[in-house]
Computed example of a mutant assay.
Amino acid sequence: MAYSGTPVLLEDLLFKPQNSLVIQSKHSRLGATTVNGDGFGVGWYAEGARPGVYRSTEPAWNDSNLRELSAMARSRRVFAHIRASTGTAVQQSNCHPFRQGDWLWMHNGAIADFSVIKRDLALAVDPALYADIAGSTDSEMLFFLALTLGLHDDPTGAVARAVGLVEEVAGRHGIADPVQMTVATTDGETTWAFRYATAGSARSLFHSTDVATLRAQYPDNPQLHDLSDDARLIVSEPLGDLQGAWREVPESSYVVVRGASEELGSFVPTAP
């Protein structure tokens, strides 16, 4: 889940919605697994440019510190993730979101046969960045490949180049359909989200519709009146059943959220 807009309490995003992320950690409707209990993480921007991060290997529904923190912390931009491991260890350094400087990154999906191509991918990471890789996941490796390939200056292009590199390396090892992903990343001012799978059947991804339109549709819904017109959410599955509140991000597409503006485009990996 990626939120931007009016500063809100984290609990308003993580606990209060009908189908909140904490509910999804036990009862995901659209995820590859129903239960996502291998840890969680939340990243948020407060006063400075560098975001705060709280990650735990506890299931999100069972972490009392998350409830305490989310009742006190307020932010204009929030990233949150619940984890179901695809094979790497259940440890804090493997929980999303990952942080590097002002940037946050999180990923749903997997790189097929990651252990087979992990060394080749690691050697493609900028040596100046490599020491900052703290965990062992394919998700963090993909983040550092994107950083190496220009995430700061050209996020959409950098992710396309990173995915293209993974597909090229996987092809050399005879691995079919290597990439399955929805990815969200932010520099604290803009959010980019991507939906792509080599085989063409990616994990689900949705973005919220215009808040002003929803207010007009649902004038008696108090939650909508507390949000600014530029409030936006990008989620793996809708947080509620409000009709017209969510649009699915198409396959092989990306969405960029800057303030109240949204840009939707086609995502095509770039061969290295």
Rank of each mutant, 00 (worst) to 15 (best):
R203L: 12
G150T: 12
E248Y: 01
G188C: 05
T190K: 04
V256P: 13
T185S: 08
W192C: 09
S261K: 09
V249C: 07
L224A: 04
G164I: 08
L151K: 10
E237H: 06
L151D: 10
D229I: 05
S252E: 06
V163Y: 01
V235D: 06
A212T: 15
L224M: 02
A212M: 09
D187I: 09
E168A: 15
A158Y: 07
P222M: 08
F144L: 07
L205D: 10
D229A: 15
L264R: 00
D229C: 07
Q243Y: 03
R161D: 04
L233V: 15
P250A: 03
D177E: 10
F143I: 05
L145G: 05
T190N: 06
V256T: 15
T182N: 14
L227Q: 04
L239Q: 10
F144P: 10
P222D: 13
F267C: 10
Q223Y: 08
F206T: 10
F206H: 09
A184F: 00
V166G: 14
W246S: 04
R232T: 14
G171W: 02
T186W: 00
N221Y: 03
D187R: 01
G150C: 06
E263P: 03
Y254H: 15
H152I: 10
G171F: 05
V256S: 12
V169Y: 08
P178V: 11
E167R: 06
S228T: 11
T213W: 01
L145R: 01
H225V: 09
L242R: 09
L149M: 10
M181K: 02
T198W: 05
L239F: 09
F144W: 02
P250V: 06
G200S: 11
A162L: 01
L224I: 02
D154P: 11
S236T: 14
H207A: 11
T156E: 13
A193D: 10
Y254R: 00
L151F: 06
L145H: 02
S204V: 13
A231D: 13
R247Y: 05
L165K: 00
Q180P: 05
R161K: 09
I175G: 10
R203Q: 14
S253A: 13
L149Q: 06
P178A: 07
R215I: 07
D241T: 15
G164T: 13
D230R: 00
R161I: 04
A160P: 14
A176M: 02
R258S: 15
S201N: 13
G171I: 07
A162R: 01
V211D: 04
F267H: 11
L151S: 12
R247S: 12
V268G: 07
Q217C: 11
A199N: 07
E140M: 06
H173N: 11
Q243H: 08
R172D: 14
D226A: 12
P250N: 08
Q223G: 13
P250T: 11
A199Q: 06
M181Q: 08
W246Y: 02
